[in-house]
Design a protein around this nucleic acid. Structure first.
Lengths: 196, 196
DNA sequence: CCTACCGATCGGTAGG
DNA sequence: CCTACCGATCGGTAGG
């Protein structure tokens, strides 16, 4: 029953989520209205609800898409053997790449997750806390192995993740340096700060 | 006419702005309502308008208070002679101190300035751009004098300012390390990343 | 500083 | 996918 037709809704919903990310990034979740979103998508506001359940669903779709990608990357990294400093660099490059190439979703996930509704909000906060702990554990491991200078790992994680979210300003700037060059500069400074 | 009485409104308004900063930080500017603010202040919503002109006025009061403090600090720093790396460290410590001790206002200024109304919005964006350029100029000066490693100064500024805004997470965390220790760790990593 | 209230806009639903 | 519309809530004002 509807086996064939329902799947066609997939791409339509994807477009809505994608446009929502752009809109939420520009105006903020609360300030963005469903009527504006409808206009961008090219339908009446009421029609959006044939594809989505609520405005909140759009936000948690965006946030969990992003969170899942990062969690998956971290899973991979933890499974690898090797130098901790190299792992940190690898993860940073993944984050930088995310900010450069999936800017809107990552930005919305970073800045608008507070507006998630329960139970998604708690779930998200737990995942976020866990992610940071695992990231810090890699750094601590590196400190133990004398590959990384002795610093507070939690603070280091906090610095790195937020530093990367600064790529927002890079997107906005006019005399943009090249994305690859941005990445190399960020790595030089951030990884440089960890070296002994 | 009203020379004496009008000044009494000063402290009352200050309380409102202060409470507004806390509320805007917690819920975001758009999601925070004047009725909630009134409740926190301890009056009816309508009574707030005897002290302020609009919700927007609260936001630009907060944002420009913060911006003025930072601009003033930078003025001082530029007037000094001395080592560029030291100046950068000094400015970073000022920013860290701002995030630790004037958390709500700085946070709101950082994250909610987009909701400023014209002409304040344009004014704010200009000030912000100018501030970053002046900060970058100090770093470039340090590179020229071989006090700082050769990196893109604009990227460095972007990293530092955003890294510091990460202190938000520190405020939220339970097993908080000491404020002073946080500062030293941040300086070690960030300034460490600039050293040759 | 309060009571009473306005016009605008919001997210979302009914029904086709 | 649209027209028509609802209840709730918003920022703000009038008048005392």
């Amino acid at each position: 029953m509807g086996r064939i037709k329902t799947d066609n809704n997939g791409s339509r919903k994807d477009v809505i989520v994608e446009k929502a990310a752009i809109l939420f990034k520009e105006k903020g979740f609360k300030a963005a209205s469903m009527r504006e979103l409808a206009e961008v998508v090219g339908v009446e506001a009421a029609s959006l609800y044939n594809h989505i359940k609520s405005k909140n669903e759009l936000l948690h779709e965006i946030c969990f898409n992003v969170a899942n990608r990062f969690n998956h990357k971290l899973d991979e990294l933890e499974a690898e053997e090797g130098n901790s400093l190299q792992k940190v660099e690898d993860l940073l490059r993944f984050h930088i790449d995310g900010m450069v190439h999936h800017f809107e979703e990552v930005f919305v996930c970073d800045r608008e997750w507070k507006h998630l509704s329960e139970p998604y909000l708690s779930n998200f906060q737990n995942q976020r806390r866990s992610y940071r702990k695992r990231f810090a554990a890699i750094i601590e491991d590196g400190i133990k192995k004398k590959e990384i200078k002795k610093i507070d790992a939690t603070t280091a994680v906090l610095i790195m993740l937020h530093a990367i979210s600064g790529i927002e300003s890079w997107h906005r700037s006019k005399q943009k340096i090249d994305g690859k060059e941005l990445e190399e500069n960020m790595i030089a400074i951030l990884v440089g700060g960890l070296k002994k």
